[in-house]
């Protein structure tokens, strides 16, 4: 376990944001909507931006102190950083890029394992400027890992990577974390990615303070305005056997509306747009009806948050009154109804 002591204030947009927290890592998910300052916060922790004031200590070593000024730049911190926007050097091949980041004491079996899991073996001789978005994302993630860091900071690391590889990448990071014992800070606006690594989150909802704690507790304490600021978003992956064939999610035909690109495979929709039903319903305008088992029910001030295990977790929000009327229970089979119009394609998935 690592200890990150933060007592800092920093500009995020036009507001001054303050954090005073002793964080024990493990893993900490940083969750919040786009523009809430997740990236700025991570860059400040990594050592790319100096905080306005305060102090920051990593396992007893001072990384920042306002007075007398102490500052350890990123290059001298044992940090692996995966930038949201890749930042691969255009004059390097993938191999040169990885060697530039590789820590000398990383043994070659671990290095090869990273390359293999992220599917980079066949890309080594390619120029980084010729990679597709998903490939570049994987190289960027590998760069952070081959640093063999004490603190791994991942900023939306799985955007643009297909579902199978996301699962493999999550497994890889978990195995490496067990072997190397690094602390992990993971920013994402997808709850499922964060929950793959742990239950502890820092909630950034655009206000001047962050909240820390167990995700379910935090979500359930969140007041309605904050939920509007920070809506719970579902992300599902669909597949298609061949070009022209219908697109399916867990063997169910997926109907798409105009907000989804016809050839997309990854879609997002809000938890509050999911309708739950005990039976499949004919003669209704909602065409997507995905069966699943209720795995969790969390009471919150604004209703109930339900997790539906349909091969992939689908979150649904229902009101207090609905739950009082229908009495959904954990383990029960239900259908998640999603309007085709509510599906938006996540178009940066390759």
């Amino acid at each position: 376990m690592h200890q990150l002591d933060l007592h800092i204030s920093q500009h995020i947009g036009s507001t001054v944001f303050q954090v005073s927290q002793q964080i024990t890592l493990g893993s900490l998910g940083i969750w919040g909507p786009s523009g809430a300052g997740k990236s700025s916060f991570l860059k400040m922790i990594a050592g790319l931006h100096k905080p306005l004031s305060g102090s920051m200590t990593w396992n007893g070593t001072s990384w920042f102190q306002q007075w007398p000024l102490k500052w350890t730049p990123l290059r001298r911190r044992p940090v692996g950083f995966c930038f949201q926007d890749n930042r691969l050097f255009p004059h390097f091949s993938v191999d040169q890029q990885l060697q530039f980041f590789r820590q000398p004491d990383l043994d070659s079996s671990e290095y090869n394992k990273i390359l293999e899991t992220l599917g980079l073996d066949s890309l080594l001789s390619q120029k980084t400027s010729q990679l597709s978005g998903g490939e570049a994302r994987r190289v960027s993630l590998a760069c952070a890992l081959v640093r063999k860091p004490e603190l791994l900071i991942l900023d939306e690391p799985f955007t643009g990577i297909d579902q199978k590889r996301v699962m493999q990448a999550i497994d890889l990071i978990q195995i490496l974390q067990r072997n190397w014992q690094f602390g992990l800070l993971l920013a994402s606006h997808h709850l499922n990615e964060i929950l793959a690594f742990g239950q502890e989150i820092m909630l950034l909802d655009g206000s001047t303070q962050a909240s820390f704690g167990n995700w379910a507790n935090l979500l359930c304490q969140m007041q309605l305005p904050a939920l509007h600021q920070c809506p719970i978003e579902n992300v599902i992956w669909a597949s298609r056997m061949a070009q022209g064939e219908p697109i399916v999610v867990e063997n169910e035909h997926l109907f798409l509306g105009p907000a989804a690109l016809p050839d997309a495979k990854c879609f997002k929709f809000l938890a509050q747009d999911v309708i739950l039903a005990r039976n499949k319903i004919e003669n209704i305008s909602v065409r997507n009806q995905i069966p699943g088992r209720i795995s969790q029910i969390l009471p919150a001030p604004w209703g109930h948050l339900l997790a539906l295990d349909a091969g992939q977790t689908i979150w649904a929000i229902i009101t207090e009154e609905t739950q009082a009327h229908l009495h959904f229970e954990v383990g029960e089979m239900v259908y998640g109804l999603i309007k085709a119009m509510a599906l938006q394609s996540v178009d940066d998935v390759y």
Partner: peptide, 9 residues
């Protein structure tokens, strides 16, 4: 910034 993240001098 990316070069900083690589930890090189």
């Amino acid at each position: 910034e990316a070069a900083e993240a690589a930890g090189v001098s």
